[in-house]
């Protein structure tokens, strides 16, 4: 646990020091604002609908930001040689992955918190509750945290950040299309794909509408755990290559 904390502090410091991280945050804020204006502010709508659309557009922006933030986590260390310091220290692979993941997740929390001014404005001008906003933000973090876990796995697997980006995009977009795919299938396979969908089922039809289901929390926790475990095993396996 001590090693996890040491790695967490270093990685979080790296995010906070890096201008690129703040460029990603800025881009997320700008894009979510533009998309809100272009998609959610058309015509006269109920404030609850505007909030739902805000979470719809912002989840896409934060999901992309999570992917971009994750590429560097292991692949950059491997490319510039600093992974050797971690590999030759008495630190378990689990601590390396967990420390890096939690640091990126913390930075994502900062990013989501910075977008919160929009739902607060919606609350001021409309009739949404603070609970709806909080549930939406928690849902955003669960969804983005899962994309982050996919990115950490891709980063551990790939030799460089470009390939990590491609792998992350392929997995996240693929899992985000399960809902569409399920529409073309019959039961019981249809149900399986619906349950495995990354975005529409577990976010947009849940936390995105101000309702958080336990099954959604379990789903995101399980998928995150699965990909983080894969990342740990990938790091271990690389030593045998």
């Amino acid at each position: 646990m001590a090693a996890t904390s040491v790695i967490y502090r270093r990685e979080l410091g790296a995010y906070l020091r890096s201008p690129w991280s703040w460029v990603i945050v800025s881009a997320t804020l700008v894009l979510s604002g533009i998309l809100l204006w272009a998609y959610a502010m058309k015509g006269e709508l109920l404030s609850a609908i505007v909030l739902e659309r805000f979470f719809f557009t912002t989840s896409l922006c934060v999901g992309v930001a999570a992917g971009v933030l994750s590429f560097r986590l292991v692949a950059e260390d491997r490319a510039n040689g600093s992974l050797v310091l971690l590999n030759t220290s008495p630190v378990r692979e689990t601590s390396i992955i967990l420390g890096k993941y939690l640091a990126a997740l913390t930075f994502l929390v900062i990013t989501v918190a910075l977008t919160a001014y929009i739902p607060l404005l919606i609350k001021l001008a409309g009739k949404v509750t603070i609970s709806q906003i909080l549930v939406g933000c928690v849902g955003l973090l669960l969804f983005a945290g899962t994309v982050l876990a996919i990115g950490v796995f891709a980063s551990a697997l790939a030799p460089n950040q470009v390939i990590a980006a491609v792998i992350t995009g392929a997995i996240a977009l693929g899992m985000g299309q399960f809902y569409q795919l399920a529409g073309a299938l019959d039961e019981p396979v249809r149900g399986v794909f619906m349950d495995l969908d990354l975005w529409m089922i577990h976010f947009q039809q849940g936390a995105g509408r101000g309702v958080i289901h336990l099954k959604d929390v379990v789903y995101y926790a399980a998928v995150s755990y699965f990909f983080l475990l894969l990342a740990v095993k990938t790091l271990e396996a690389k030593r045998w290559q």
Binding site: G81, S82, V84
Partner: peptide
């Protein structure tokens, strides 16, 4: 190692 394992930002 051949390439010192450094974090350039630190």
């Amino acid at each position: 190692p051949e390439n010192p394992p450094l974090y350039m930002d630190m």
